[in-house]
Amino acid sequence: MQAASFLEKEDPLQRAHRLAKRRVALLFYESSTRTRTSFELAAKGLGADTTLVSALSSSIEKGESLKDTGLTLRALGAECIILRHPNSGAPYLLDRVTHLPVLNAGDGMHAHPSQALLDLRTILHRLRPEHTNAEIDESTLAGVTVLITGDILHSRVARSNAELLPRLGARVILCGPKALLPECASEIGPGIAIERNFAHAMRGAQVVMMLRIQKERLAGLELNLNDYIAHYQLNAERLAENAPRALVMHPGPMIRGMEITSEVADGPQSVIEEQVRHGVAVRTALIARALDAMPELVSA
């Protein structure tokens, strides 16, 4: 977090020297706007040359394996691969076969670590401003309750946040219907609880994080969309009644009118755009760390 702040404030010309002429590959098996652009801007900001390889315009389409694609990128001089992949755990495989630093830009339903880190930075900025430039520890977020609502089952963002935030002392409440939130979700780590009633869950939360509801993923689940909206949509009345001071977050892409209304997404409690801004800073630090180009920080 400190490195992210340092690099964010650093003179752009100086920053661009850190990875000048070094090669960073973005390997994207899924389409993505904000994560890809954000990583790309971060890498370019550090002066790196970036190559984008996406599934639809490459040998991947012809059936090339992840291993061979990774080895090809390495042979072409890539020193770090940023991977977005539909299969959980794919970064572990890429790391094993290429021995290059691999940054996980989202793998299946498993993890989206850079998203969780930018969410953390957003929360720190708003709720713990004194910590954004200082060290953080297991009690930095003590007393903070983060509510994550929606399709937890399919969400790598939910898993990464549920893993990260309790380590800093936050309590994470997961909310959603059984079809999208199995009971065992609370057992994946400490500091995680389930509350099915959205209004109850909102009371006492300082952060309300909403997740996208993907219609295609609901096929086959016992879940009615209108029911979902009736019980779990974040609208202005619900927010005013239960959490009038909470931060409203969303990792995007949002489906307005589904999990969240436009009034709330664009309203005064929303920090959704801010999340995107923090993304570049966090990813700049991640890339710098992966390539050993971190600033020397004076410890507080």
Partner: peptide, 10 residues
Amino acid sequence: AGPLAFRLGL
């Protein structure tokens, strides 16, 4: 199936 599968996204 279980908490580990859930955490691993499998």
